[in-house]
């Protein structure tokens, strides 16, 4: 069943049961996000897709569309808040784009471009989180993790369904951990998929890197905005 909702003062037709973030994308309204993957269960961890729904700020990936819903996406105050959320992520970890292999394919970087971030107003923390290289085919650059939990929820052992990644500790001491035994059972394709699923340069494939030169990388060729509006899943 279809009904109309209002996004940025424009009436649009949406399908029942659809998530607000997908409904907006289908109607040409881009909402940046870092933890949501189209077609996969919602995580609601990053809050970067925050919009105003019927006057209250909420994450667009967590809201199923309802008839008559009034949504503000690009209203300046909400847009500024999303920008601040992204800027906070940049100061919380070590996001050294010039030295990162993921640069140009990194969703955090692409989202920062979309929200027109130039510098983070927050003090940079420069956390020290040790790199993990025990797995045969995966590097874990822990200081780049934004704790979106995509890998925790969506990358699992095929036989047992057991999680391979987990977050250890809380607050400033939190860090991403990997089950080396289960990770070593992953096929090269699954390792590649896990690295692609990571929205930052935290999960990296060993033995490959800098495949595409600058100008030909994923988001150089086609922006994140265009990819999302065209319904690409990752």
């Amino acid at each position: 069943m279809s009904f109309t909702i209002t996004i940025d003062k424009r009436k649009v037709l949406v399908d029942e049961g659809c998530t607000l973030i997908d409904a907006a994308a289908d109607n040409g309204v881009f909402i940046p996000n870092l933890c949501y993957t189209r077609g996969k269960p919602c995580l609601g961890t990053c809050r970067v897709c925050s919009v105003r729904v019927n006057g209250k700020v909420t994450a667009a990936c967590t809201v199923p569309v309802q008839p008559g819903m009034v949504v503000d996406v690009n209203e300046p105050e909400v847009a500024e808040m999303r920008k601040l959320l992204v800027e906070a992520l940049f100061s919380e970890g070590n996001h050294n784009c010039p030295s990162c292999e993921k640069s140009g394919r990194c969703e955090l970087q692409a989202v920062a471009y979309e929200v027109e971030m130039t510098a983070s107003p927050f003090p940079y923390r420069f956390p020290k989180r040790e790199r993990e290289d025990a797995a045969d085919h995966i590097f874990l650059e822990r200081d780049r993790c934004i704790f979106c939990q995509r890998c925790v929820e969506h990358v699992r052992d095929e036989e047992t369904g057991q999680a391979i990644f987990a977050i250890h500790g809380r607050g400033t001491k939190a860090r991403i951990e990997i089950d080396v035994g289960l990770a070593n059972k992953l096929t090269p394709e699954q390792v590649h998929a896990a690295a692609e699923l990571c929205p930052v340069g935290c999960i990296l494939e060993k033995g490959v890197g800098f495949e595409d030169p600058m100008g030909s990388r994923k988001f150089d060729v086609k922006s994140l905005r265009r990819r999302m509006l065209e319904g690409e899943t990752s």
């Binding site: 784009c97 010039p98 970087q109 471009y113 979309e114 027109e116 971030m117 130039t118 600058m214």
Partner: peptide, 11 residues
């Protein structure tokens, strides 16, 4: 001042 996405680069 403006920094639209197609001009913005961090690397």
């Amino acid at each position: 001042f403006s920094m639209p996405p197609d001009f913005n680069r961090f690397d």
